[in-house]
């Protein structure tokens, strides 16, 4: 393989990997604070893609502008799912050891409901935005870089930095970190734990709202799109370290570059087997992930 093809593959992998990371941020944040593996993660992304699509097709809204709608809507939805569906479980189990399996099952239920409601409401047809061709592809040394993908990739870094800063320097952020470290201690020092949980879940989902708006210009949308991103997000987050914000971005880039380079040597199907093997190896030998603490 020559240097051109290799650097081309790396650029591809970086762009795609950063987007994987950005999409996975919410999953990692929610796990870090609530210890809940959100099986419905991809479904929330699917929904925000649809919202972005409908904003464009019904009102002619620019897909990037639709973030103004998707972000608050997804925040509200996440807030609601946490306080209505998951909170009763956490209340019930608060006295005992938290059993994350029940939460996984609960969100698996949310996944089944959301994906199939979307199928019932929107139908199985694949949809795609057509209006967004104003961002041209740039060619650097003969390597094409899609403007839209570049924006998505950059946004992943910005969001990750923004969330980290906010967690460190705002009151709510500090409350979230305190709750993540020790729920009972946080509760005793006057932090409203249920509210913190709901806000965290809301923020996790609103990040998906943002990325829904950012990737809707180039991604075909169907009710089953969520699962593809959902499983990828699990791999990314486990690789980077469940609960780690920077880990999500690092994990995304590792997977993105790994798949891009590997698929130049073998078929993409073998590359995807490779990333699953990597996933298992990490879980068995370093369950805290690349960036997570032991």
């Amino acid at each position: 393989m020559d240097a051109f093809i290799l650097s081309y593959a790396v650029v591809n992998g970086l762009l795609q990997g950063a987007i994987y990371g950005g999409v996975a941020l919410g999953l990692s944040l929610i796990f870090g604070v609530l210890r809940v593996v959100n099986f419905a993660h991809g479904s929330f992304l699917m929904l925000s893609l649809y919202i972005s699509f409908w904003c464009w097709s019904l009102f002619g809204m620019d897909p990037y502008l639709s973030a103004l709608i998707t972000v608050p809507v997804m925040f509200a939805l996440g807030y609601m799912v946490q306080s209505v569906v998951i909170a009763p479980l956490i209340r019930r189990e608060s006295a005992m050891v938290v059993e994350p399996l029940s939460a996984l099952l609960l969100t698996a239920g949310v996944f089944l409901v959301m994906d199939n409601m979307a199928l019932m409401a929107f139908g199985p047809d694949v949809r795609a935005l057509q209006g967004a061709y104003y961002i041209p592809t740039i060619f650097i040394g003969g390597i094409p870089i899609s403007g839209q993908r570049l924006i998505g990739a950059l946004a992943a870094f910005v969001v990750a930095l923004g969330i980290s800063y906010w967690l460190r320097h705002s009151d709510m952020g500090r409350a979230i970190r305190a709750t993540a470290q020790n729920r009972d201690a946080a509760s005793m020092s006057g932090i409203n734990v249920p509210a913190v949980y709901a806000v965290t879940f809301g923020i996790g989902c609103s990040i998906l709202g943002l990325f829904g708006a950012l990737i809707s210009p180039f991604l075909p949308i169907s009710p089953s799109i969520g699962l593809a991103f959902g499983i990828k997000s699990f791999v990314v987050v486990v690789l980077g370290g469940l609960g780690s914000i920077s880990g999500a971005i690092v994990g995304g880039i590792v997977i993105g570059v790994f798949e891009a380079v590997a698929s130049q040597f073998v078929t993409a199907t073998s590359a995807s087997i490779g990333s699953l093997v990597l996933f298992i190896l990490i879980l068995v030998f370093r369950p805290q992930g690349i960036m997570g603490r032991a």
Partner: peptide
């Protein structure tokens, strides 16, 4: 080249075709 269904990016396959 076989591709797994429901891809989110064809950049890698397009590169292979280019090569």
């Amino acid at each position: 080249e076989a591709a797994p269904p429901n891809q989110t990016d064809f950049g890698n396959q397009l590169l292979k075709i280019r090569a």
